[in-house]
């Protein structure tokens, strides 16, 4: 932080909160409890490297490689690590599969547990009270609010994540994608489709 103390925008005064965080960081750096460069690296990793593209790679692989899919359900954490994704909040991952008969969705009612290695940090609404409180009593209503009308004859399963197990959804592969490469398929896989709060993109629109 010391390097840019004088090149920030002075048109708006920093909020009390910003100043407090700045003070805390200065204090912890002075006491050698944290290093500013290490904090920069952490922020960069979660802003630019660890995000839903990772999860999309896992899903696309599972769609094209039946052996990989078997491994993914036998030991999700190990199969995801095969693609190079592991680490914090990914110590024990579980994948749940959407089918024509079942729609899965994930939540963390207690806080914000989420599969960081595959999806990155959760979006704000996932961490906020309305989604956390309501999805376990009225999942269909929540899905409708999010624009997804799940047919009455389709089962909806809600998976409440914990500090130990973090879930992600394997969405259904869209029809009309036979012969597509993993890279092409990845373009259809949205963050919300792996939360179960949305669907994959339409292959017609994507092309």
């Amino acid at each position: 932080m010391t390097s840019h103390e004088h090149d920030h925008d002075h048109t708006k005064p920093p909020s009390e909160l910003e100043l407090r965080v700045k003070a805390l960081e200065s204090l912890l750096v002075e006491r050698k409890i944290v290093e500013a460069a290490a904090l920069d690296a952490i922020v960069d990793a979660y802003e630019n490297k660890i995000g839903p593209r990772n999860g999309a790679a896992v899903v696309a692989r599972a769609w094209v490689d039946p052996d990989y899919k078997v491994r993914l359900f036998a030991d999700s954490t190990a199969a995801i690590a095969e693609l190079g994704f592991s680490g914090l909040q990914g110590e024990d991952l579980a994948v749940v599969e959407n089918t024509p008969a079942v729609h899965n969705m994930i939540v963390c009612t207690l806080c914000s547990c989420y599969p960081w290695p595959t999806l990155g940090l959760p979006p704000s609404w996932y961490k906020a009270a309305p989604y956390r409180s309501r999805v376990v009593i009225d999942p269909r209503g929540v899905l409708k609010e999010l624009g997804l009308d799940v047919p009455a004859d389709k089962e909806v399963r809600v998976w409440d994540s914990t500090a130990e197990v973090r879930y992600m959804v394997l969405p259904e592969r869209p029809s009309g994608t036979d012969g597509w490469t993993e890279a092409q398929l990845m373009e259809l896989i949205t963050r919300d489709s792996m939360i179960g709060a949305g669907l994959t993109k339409s292959p017609v629109k994507a092309q």
């Binding site: 910003e18 965080v21 805390l24 944290v34 922020v43 802003e47 995000g51 704000s124 609404w125 906020a128």
Partner: peptide, 21 residues
């Protein structure tokens, strides 16, 4: 639910600093 199709990972710089600390 205030759903966002996309949003920055950290909405302000201070959020990223708290996370990293």
């Amino acid at each position: 639910i205030l759903h966002t199709p996309d949003e920055p990972v950290f909405r302000s710089e201070w959020e990223g600093r708290v996370f990293a600390m």
